[in-house]
Deep mutational scan, measured.
Amino acid sequence: MSIQHFRVALIPFFAAFCLPVFAHPETLVKVKDAEDQLGARVGYIELDLNSGKILESFRPEERFPMMSTFKVLLCGAVLSRVDAGQEQLGRRIHYSQNDLVEYSPVTEKHLTDGMTVRELCSAAITMSDNTAANLLLTTIGGPKELTAFLHNMGDHVTRLDRWEPELNEAIPNDERDTTMPAAMATTLRKLLTGELLTLASRQQLIDWMEADKVAGPLLRSALPAGWFIADKSGAGERGSRGIIAALGPDGKPSRIVVIYTTGSQATMDERNRQIAEIGASLIKHW
């Protein structure tokens, strides 16, 4: 067993022997301040990774656009098919120029040779490549099948209805392509620590998230040296922004954090800054 596999296998073990965790309302004060600064709703939840206990939450059962955070769930569904012998990570998928959609920095470079399922998941999570996500959605049967996968996990809230990039439209009061912070946090925890996926697939999923290259201005910008984070960000229309993450000190994750916002007129930089400040408060009061 590799060191990384050992780390993920012992996530519940280490967490069980940690000192009790206590909620700190100071972080919620910052979440509410972010709402004021952005002029928009902000949803927040913080779960203990081992027990699933909610440590703090704000608007945990209000719907927010998922945006690209759905790509972690998508690759979880792909990995479940791999575990069941219905898919192979090494299978190569070929596609054409007509398949390319807006923001496809990886797939646009491989029109000639195609990409493997493993490479597509890596591109979808680490670079948020939209064509990679659409190609992977095709392998599982489309958005409705991802929703069905989530329902089978016990998540009857999260739903995907459309493809990239239309799913980022974020129309107010439109339930399409949305989740709730509580539902997303619980589902992410199941994917990373539950028995739904094999140990190898859980490790692969967290490795992809740990290698995320496009979430630097968010929670990662607030992390002290030595902290662990595996995350996936999302951005959408109407001032929408979000991030889902597993993080913790001492090089291992111990909490799940989900943050979503929508309806702001603020710039992307300002949305990023507010999420980073929430992260800084979380870490300060850990």
Score class of each variant (00 low, 15 high):
F64V: 04
Y260I: 08
K190T: 14
N168S: 08
F228K: 08
I3F: 10
R81K: 14
A211L: 13
P143S: 06
R81Y: 08
K144V: 12
R189A: 13
S57D: 09
Q204L: 14
G90V: 12
Q97N: 10
E169P: 05
S68A: 00
Y44V: 07
V101S: 10
L10Y: 09
M66G: 06
L79A: 04
E195H: 14
E26G: 12
I3S: 10
T138P: 06
A23T: 04
V82E: 05
M184K: 01
T193D: 09
L73W: 03
N168G: 11
I283F: 11
R255T: 05
T69F: 01
M209Q: 02
L49F: 14
S128L: 00
T139E: 15
G248L: 00
P224D: 06
D113T: 14
E169Q: 13
L219V: 10
A215W: 02
H94C: 08
A222G: 11
W163E: 11
Y103P: 07
E166I: 13
E237F: 09
P224I: 03
A215C: 04
L247S: 02
T126N: 07
Q4V: 08
H94G: 10
P217Q: 13
A280F: 10
T158D: 01
R238E: 08
L223D: 02
H285T: 15
G234W: 00
M268C: 05
S254M: 14
E62Y: 08
Q37G: 10
A40V: 06
M67S: 10
S104G: 06
G236Y: 01
G52Y: 05
R41K: 15
K109R: 14
I171W: 14
R118G: 15
S104Y: 03
K232E: 00
I243P: 00
W208R: 01
Q265F: 13
F6R: 09
F149D: 06
A15W: 15
A280Y: 10
A225C: 13
R176H: 09
K232M: 00
T131N: 04
I54L: 14
C75D: 02
K71I: 00
Y95F: 14
T186V: 14
T261W: 04
T193G: 15
A133I: 00
H110W: 08
D207C: 10
G194R: 09
M127W: 13
R271W: 03
M180H: 14
T147I: 08
L137F: 09
P217E: 10
A215G: 09
C18F: 06
A16M: 15
L150M: 11
I283A: 08
P20Q: 15
F70G: 07
L73F: 08
I244L: 09
L199H: 12
E277Q: 10
E62L: 07
P105D: 04
G154W: 04
T198G: 11
W227H: 02
I140Y: 09
P60F: 10
L49A: 09
H5S: 05
P165E: 06
A246H: 04
D155G: 01
A40H: 04
V117P: 04
V101G: 07
A225L: 12
L219S: 04
K252T: 11
N98P: 09
I140P: 01
L218E: 02
G85E: 11
R220C: 03
L28A: 10
L160C: 11
W286K: 02
E26D: 09
G154M: 06
P181R: 00
D99S: 10
M184L: 07
F13N: 03
Y260P: 00
E237S: 15
W163Q: 09
A182R: 14
F13V: 11
R176V: 06
F13T: 12
I244Q: 01
G263I: 04
P105G: 04
V78H: 03
S264L: 04
G242F: 00
T267H: 11
G85H: 12
I243W: 04
M127F: 11
G114K: 04
F17W: 10
H24K: 15
G226T: 12
E108S: 11
S80D: 10
G142T: 07
F70N: 05
F228N: 06
P12M: 14
R59Y: 04
W163G: 09
G39Q: 11
L74K: 01
Y44A: 02
F149S: 07
G142Q: 04
D99M: 12
S2M: 12
T261L: 10
R41E: 07
R159M: 07
F64T: 01
I206G: 09
A16L: 15
G43A: 08
A245W: 01
G242R: 00
A123T: 05
R255M: 05
G114Q: 04
C18S: 11
G39C: 11
G52W: 05
T116A: 07
L47H: 03
A34D: 02
R238W: 10
Q204G: 05
L47K: 04
T158S: 11
R273Q: 10
Q4P: 08
D161H: 07
R271F: 04
A211V: 08
D129Y: 00
T138N: 15
D129I: 00
E175Q: 14
A123G: 06
V117Y: 03
D36Y: 13
E164N: 00
T179N: 00
P25K: 10
L191T: 06
T69S: 06
L199V: 15
E210A: 10
S104I: 02
Q86N: 11
A215S: 09
L205Y: 02
G236I: 02
K284T: 14
T158V: 04
S104N: 05
A211P: 04
F6D: 05
A182H: 12
L223R: 05
W286I: 05
R273D: 10
L73G: 07
L89R: 03
G52E: 07
S264G: 10
G85N: 11
L55G: 06
L199K: 11
L223P: 02
G76A: 14
A84Q: 13
S57T: 11
T139K: 08
F17K: 07
V106A: 10
G279Q: 02
C75E: 01
L188Q: 03
L135R: 04
A225N: 15
G279N: 03
L197P: 04
R255P: 00
E270I: 12
A276E: 09
P249R: 09
A245C: 10
R41H: 15
Q265Y: 12
I11V: 12
V31M: 08
S264Y: 04
A182K: 14
A183T: 12
E195I: 03
Y95G: 03
T147M: 07
A230K: 01
A34E: 03
G248V: 01
R271C: 08
A200M: 11
F58T: 08
M184R: 00
S57E: 13
R159W: 06
G251Y: 09
E102G: 09
L247M: 15
K30W: 05
A9E: 06
F149W: 14
I283P: 02
V72L: 05
A133R: 00
I229F: 03
L49T: 08
S57Y: 11
M127T: 13
I229H: 02
Y260Q: 02
T178G: 03
I243Y: 06
N134Q: 05
P224K: 07
P12D: 07
A9N: 09
G43E: 00
I125D: 01
L89F: 08
Q203C: 02
D231Y: 04
A230Y: 03
H156L: 11
R7N: 10
T186C: 15
T126I: 09
L111G: 06
I54G: 04
S201H: 15
G76M: 05
S51K: 09
K109N: 12
T112R: 15
H94D: 11
G154L: 05
I11H: 05
P20D: 15
S128T: 01
K109D: 12
R238N: 15
P143E: 05
S51G: 09
M209N: 00
E119H: 09
D177A: 02
A40M: 09
W208D: 05
V258N: 02
A124G: 07
P181I: 04
G76V: 05
R41V: 09
R91Q: 07
A211W: 08
H5T: 10
